Computed example of a mutant assay.
Amino acid sequence: MRKKKRLGEFREMICYVGLHFTNSLETQVGEGFIDRFIEEAIEENKLAFGGGGQAYKYEGSVTAMAYRGSVSEAQRSAVEQWLIKEPEVVEYYITPLFDAWYVDLDSVKENWVKKS
């Protein structure tokens, strides 16, 4: 029953991420940047990204690649470290992990961090 209700060890932990990157990138370069974000920050950490954006702002959810899996704190931290080290990222947020099935979305805060 806990598996069916996704409780305990069957929870699916995810996080939300958002990023603004420099508007000095041309359109093709910006698309390449997003491809690099997906490849290096998401897929290399065995994660999936669902979301999108326009111009220089992208937002979405980060989930485990595995069916019914969870994002670990180490994976979440790896994504955050990628955002911190990339010079093209001027502002970002990454939420704490939360249960994808039992969450009050009003409690999930997007605390944007401006990089200097």
Results as ranks from 00 to 15, higher is better:
residue 1 M to A: 13
residue 3 K to D: 08
residue 3 K to R: 15
residue 3 K to Q: 15
residue 3 K to F: 02
residue 4 K to C: 12
residue 4 K to G: 11
residue 5 K to Q: 15
residue 5 K to G: 13
residue 7 L to K: 15
residue 7 L to G: 14
residue 7 L to I: 11
residue 7 L to N: 04
residue 7 L to F: 09
residue 8 G to L: 12
residue 9 E to K: 14
residue 9 E to N: 11
residue 9 E to H: 06
residue 10 F to D: 12
residue 11 R to A: 12
residue 13 M to P: 07
residue 13 M to E: 09
residue 13 M to T: 01
residue 16 Y to I: 01
residue 16 Y to W: 11
residue 16 Y to N: 14
residue 17 V to I: 03
residue 17 V to R: 00
residue 18 G to R: 02
residue 19 L to H: 02
residue 19 L to E: 05
residue 19 L to G: 00
residue 20 H to K: 01
residue 24 S to A: 15
residue 24 S to L: 11
residue 25 L to G: 05
residue 25 L to H: 05
residue 28 Q to V: 14
residue 28 Q to R: 14
residue 35 D to T: 12
residue 36 R to M: 13
residue 36 R to W: 10
residue 42 I to V: 07
residue 43 E to P: 04
residue 44 E to N: 15
residue 45 N to E: 02
residue 45 N to G: 03
residue 46 K to L: 14
residue 46 K to I: 08
residue 48 A to N: 14
residue 48 A to R: 09
residue 49 F to D: 08
residue 49 F to L: 00
residue 50 G to Q: 11
residue 51 G to W: 06
residue 52 G to L: 06
residue 54 Q to V: 15
residue 55 A to C: 10
residue 56 Y to C: 11
residue 60 G to K: 09
residue 61 S to E: 12
residue 62 V to T: 02
residue 63 T to S: 11
residue 65 M to T: 07
residue 66 A to Y: 04
residue 66 A to N: 06
residue 67 Y to E: 08
residue 67 Y to R: 07
residue 67 Y to M: 08
residue 68 R to H: 10
residue 68 R to C: 10
residue 69 G to F: 04
residue 71 V to P: 05
residue 72 S to V: 07
residue 73 E to T: 13
residue 76 R to S: 04
residue 76 R to N: 00
residue 76 R to V: 01
residue 76 R to Y: 03
residue 77 S to H: 12
residue 77 S to R: 07
residue 80 E to T: 11
residue 82 W to M: 05
residue 82 W to N: 10
residue 83 L to D: 03
residue 84 I to H: 06
residue 85 K to S: 15
residue 85 K to R: 15
residue 86 E to W: 03
residue 86 E to M: 12
residue 87 P to N: 14
residue 88 E to T: 09
residue 90 V to M: 00
residue 91 E to N: 06
residue 92 Y to G: 02
residue 92 Y to K: 06
residue 92 Y to E: 00
residue 92 Y to T: 01
residue 93 Y to R: 01
residue 93 Y to P: 03
residue 94 I to S: 07
residue 94 I to A: 02
residue 94 I to C: 04
residue 94 I to L: 07
residue 94 I to R: 03
residue 95 T to K: 09
residue 95 T to W: 03
residue 95 T to L: 08
residue 95 T to H: 05
residue 96 P to N: 14
residue 96 P to E: 15
residue 96 P to C: 11
residue 96 P to I: 04
residue 97 L to M: 02
residue 98 F to D: 09
residue 98 F to V: 11
residue 99 D to M: 06
residue 100 A to F: 01
residue 101 W to C: 13
residue 102 Y to R: 11
residue 102 Y to C: 08
residue 102 Y to I: 11
residue 103 V to G: 10
residue 103 V to R: 05
residue 103 V to Y: 05
residue 104 D to H: 11
residue 104 D to Q: 10
residue 105 L to T: 13
residue 105 L to R: 13
residue 106 D to S: 12
residue 106 D to K: 14
residue 107 S to T: 10
residue 107 S to G: 10
residue 107 S to Q: 10
residue 107 S to I: 02
residue 108 V to K: 02
residue 109 K to F: 04
residue 109 K to P: 06
residue 109 K to C: 00
residue 110 E to W: 00
residue 111 N to Q: 13
residue 111 N to H: 09
residue 112 W to V: 03
residue 112 W to H: 00
residue 112 W to F: 06
residue 113 V to L: 03
residue 115 K to I: 11
residue 116 S to H: 13
residue 116 S to V: 13
residue 116 S to C: 04
